[in-house]
């Protein structure tokens, strides 16, 4: 029994409550041009050629291997109220493997959070629903056409899955990545806010734009359109926050 894994990262503090280990599943069905983990998009192994050395990203890991790696930090999870976060790539494209690992984690009493873009078949959500303690759910845009053309994502499916989670009473942490030129204009923000309100979302977390993935694009030999786009200034962030707060409660990732 195996899963296709890009990376396992210990002591993650930005991916949910407490001290967590983040398992990055490899392969994604979206093509967001700003993605900061481009090496995790293709399902096949891929080579990153850094100036100082080359690294291959992606390997099939046995369940036991993944669990052993996760369990090393069990005492830290217990002390901090932390656990494991499955991220990616898109973890829910490997829902079967994820659910298999999740059942073992549940048996061990280890908290599991799922970090997803939500553009996945409904049964993938259903498979993890009883096993995950909480969900980090990306909501990038309320503009159906733009989402389809730029990210290759299907808004209706994302919203159906979000509704599915909410109506099942899941603990959903909605997150909006702020991408200059994509979703930070006032009209875009108001559309997102109104949509979230309609979906019954009360609060959302903003992820400020960053271009830290640039060295990965270089190492992959891929073009990176955001190379010259600076992160939002504090003033810009507070403008965005102000607009969205008319609709939902907003926090910003520290």
């Amino acid at each position: 029994m195996e899963a296709n894994i890009a990376n396992i990262q210990h002591f993650s503090v930005g991916d949910g409550a407490g001290i967590r280990t983040t398992v990055f599943f490899k392969g994604c069905n979206l093509r967001c041009p700003w993605c900061h983990n481009p090496e995790a998009i293709p399902a096949a192994p891929i080579t990153l050629r850094y100036p100082e050395k080359s690294e291959i990203c992606g390997r099939r890991m046995r369940d036991e291997e993944i669990l052993a790696d996760i369990l090393e930090d069990a005492e830290f999870y217990a002390a901090s109220g932390g656990g494991v976060t499955f991220s990616g790539g898109e973890v829910l494209l490997q829902a079967e493997a994820a659910a298999r690992l999740a059942r073992q984690l549940k048996a061990l009493g280890i908290s599991l959070w799922i970090d997803t873009a939500g553009c996945v078949p409904a049964d993938a959500i259903d498979a993890l629903l009883p096993l995950a303690e909480a969900w980090l759910f990306d909501y990038k845009s309320a503009d159906e056409l733009r989402l389809r053309d730029i990210c290759g994502a299907e808004l209706s499916r994302i919203e159906e899955n979000l509704t599915r989670l909410l109506s099942a009473g899941a603990d959903v942490h909605l997150r909006i990545p702020l991408i200059p030129g994509f979703n930070t204009g006032e009209g875009d923000l108001r559309a997102i806010g109104a949509r979230l309100q309609r979906l019954g979302i009360r609060r959302a977390e903003l992820l400020a734009f960053h271009r830290l993935g640039v060295s990965k694009y270089d190492a992959l030999g891929l073009p990176y359109p955001y190379r010259d786009i600076p992160p939002q200034t504090p003033e810009e962030l507070s403008r965005i926050r102000q607009v969205l707060e008319e609709y939902v409660q907003i926090s910003i990732e520290p």
Partner: peptide, 15 residues
């Protein structure tokens, strides 16, 4: 940052 980590020294100067 959330869902991501990278070695600082690998980043370009402006980043």
């Amino acid at each position: 940052v959330s869902g991501f980590s990278e070695y600082y020294v690998r980043l370009a100067k402006e980043v």
